[in-house]
């Protein structure tokens, strides 16, 4: 039987949803982000996933709950950050965002935007143009999320991406991250 602190606090939590369709590597991206935040940056994190039967196509999402305190309920409900890599995901989840939540979409694939501030980046197009493959669009997006929100440190993210990337694709994935950082930097410049 456990004894407990009488002092009860509900720590601030930060909720992230990475959404899109099967095959876009969202569960992988969620795992990478969770490890970077949890193990390398030392915060508490719970990552869950929701997906259909399809390995390719079909809705897919990965939720992260980040907190300095204990995390009990592991799903994201009031999103601080939503990444939508498909129109369907954008339509379905943008209402779950907090009022001041951040919506990031892949502008290559999402063109009908909800009535709110949206940050669009051509993740898939950039991955295709610069790295000759759309499959690292998820990692490009992670780079942008990292640079824009500071929810995860760049160093941690680079280390985990290199560690978790399939053998032989470490460079490719690190380049994808750099592209993501770059996209965010350009945006900030423009905003200024």
């Amino acid at each position: 039987m456990e004894h407990h602190k009488k002092h009860i606090e509900l720590e601030d939590i930060y909720e992230i949803r990475l959404s899109g369709s099967g095959g876009q590597g969202l569960v992988f991206a969620g795992t990478v982000l969770a490890e970077a935040i949890g193990i390398y940056d030392g915060k508490n994190v719970a990552q869950t996933q929701s997906y259909g039967p399809e390995a390719r196509g079909g809705a897919s999402r990965s939720d992260l709950v980040v907190s300095k305190g204990e995390i009990y309920y592991p799903k994201a409900t009031k999103l601080d950050l939503l990444l939508a890599l498909t129109q369907e995901a954008c339509d379905q989840y943008s209402l779950a965002l907090k009022e001041d939540g951040i919506l990031i979409v892949d502008s290559t694939l999402v063109d009908q935007l909800p009535l709110r501030e949206v940050l669009g980046f051509p993740f898939t197009q950039v991955a295709k143009d610069e790295l000759k493959t759309p499959i690292v669009a998820n990692i490009v997006a992670l780079g942008t999320i990292c640079a824009l929100t500071k929810i995860v440190s760049k160093d941690s993210l680079i280390q985990v991406v290199r560690k978790r990337a399939p053998k032989g694709t470490e460079e490719l994935n690190q380049k994808a991250l750099q592209l993501g950082f770059e996209l965010a930097r350009k945006r900030k410049k423009k905003d200024r």
């Binding site: 795992t31 969770a34 490890e35 949890g38 193990i39 508490n44 994190v45 719970a46 990552q47 869950t48 996933q49 995390i71 592991p74 799903k75």
Partner: peptide, 9 residues
């Protein structure tokens, strides 16, 4: 399913 697929520290 939640526990089986959940990742935490």
């Amino acid at each position: 399913e939640v526990l089986g697929h959940m990742r935490e520290k």
